[in-house]
Simulated assay, not measured.
Amino acid sequence: MILRLCASASLALAGPAAARLAEPRAEQVQAEAPGSTLRDSDYRIGRIVYRLGSAARAHCPDRFPLTGLLFHHLAEYRPADRAEAIRRYGLDSGPGILAVIPDSPAARSGLAAGDVLVSVNGRPFPAPASVGAEEQSKRWRLRVEAPEILLEEQLRLGPVRLEVRRDGRSFPLTLESVPGCPARGRLARSGQANAFADGRYAIMTTRFLRFFRSDDELAVALAHELAHNILRHPQQLEAQGVPNGILRHIGRNARLVRATEEEADRLSVRLLWSAGYDLAAIIPFWRRLYARPDSQLQIISAHPSLRMRERIINEVLAELAPQPRPS
């Protein structure tokens, strides 16, 4: 669910390339596409989410094919910028690769930032121009994600054969995956401090990102949102008729939401334990979050109290203590 520091309306989600076209900053990582708008913050989210998903596979009955790829799509650019995005990145041919996580299947396959994927197992990816023409926001997001969904579906069957375009030429390449938890992360440009799970992605806003003192703290929040998606809480609450808005925090709805929050707290500790993050960062993070003057977590009845969260976290840590931690 939502880790909210201020009241907010729904966010307009966008991928890392949704901001205006810009030249890379000096601190950008080498793994990103030349000239892309991927910033170190996007790459930071991608690395942590990949680490959590790949290390915690034992906690996920539905194994997800992880590749270590971060994408951008033509439709994620403003209409006025799309011609320039095509010129720079060739995104009229298919999804572009913004970054490749080191030591991932994508890195081992030879894929690189700046590549464009044209087809998978002989099946062309959806035409980017037609996706960009979609006006209804919910359908637009589903169509933007369609190439990634197609790739995931094919990878579930085994290694895939890709047609890749690089520097004006096309060539075949085989991509494998590693089984893990459903780990998809997205950084949304927003002046509101928020993190939430939408059923597919763990979404963090740029303003909330400034709150975290370390990758260990950031991993706590991302693991919590990934846990919601792994446990299919958004779909579960929708099926139970729990609405968004103020009614979500009242009566039966609040009890149902609170139950999912407690389940996500328990699983998130196990994800962090498996991925080797500093477990001593978990409770201090929650204490800082609850202590903020603009935090609503203490007054929203759909969220556990800080005392309850600490009790849950300590219970799971006690369960894990006798076990050898994965290296």
Rank of each mutant, 00 (worst) to 15 (best):
I2G: 13
L5S: 06
S10G: 11
S10K: 15
L13F: 07
R20G: 04
L21E: 15
P24D: 07
V29K: 15
A33S: 08
P34E: 13
I48Y: 15
Y50R: 13
Y77C: 11
D81Q: 13
E84G: 01
Y89S: 00
G96D: 04
G96M: 03
L98D: 08
A106W: 13
S109V: 12
A113S: 11
R123W: 01
F125Q: 10
V131Q: 13
E134G: 05
E135L: 07
E145D: 13
E145F: 07
I149A: 05
Q154P: 07
L157N: 14
R165Y: 08
S170M: 05
S170Y: 01
S170N: 04
L173S: 09
P179T: 00
P179Q: 10
R186Q: 11
L187H: 09
L187Q: 02
S190D: 00
F196T: 01
R200G: 09
R207W: 00
F211V: 02
F211I: 00
R213I: 03
R213T: 04
E217L: 01
L218S: 05
H233A: 01
Q240C: 05
N244S: 13
G245K: 15
I246S: 07
I250R: 13
G251V: 00
N253L: 00
N253D: 11
T260F: 13
T260Y: 13
R266A: 08
S268K: 08
R270Q: 04
A275V: 05
G276T: 01
D278K: 14
L279G: 10
L279N: 10
L289K: 06
Y290T: 01
H303Y: 02
H303L: 00
E315M: 00
E319Y: 04
P324E: 02
S327W: 09
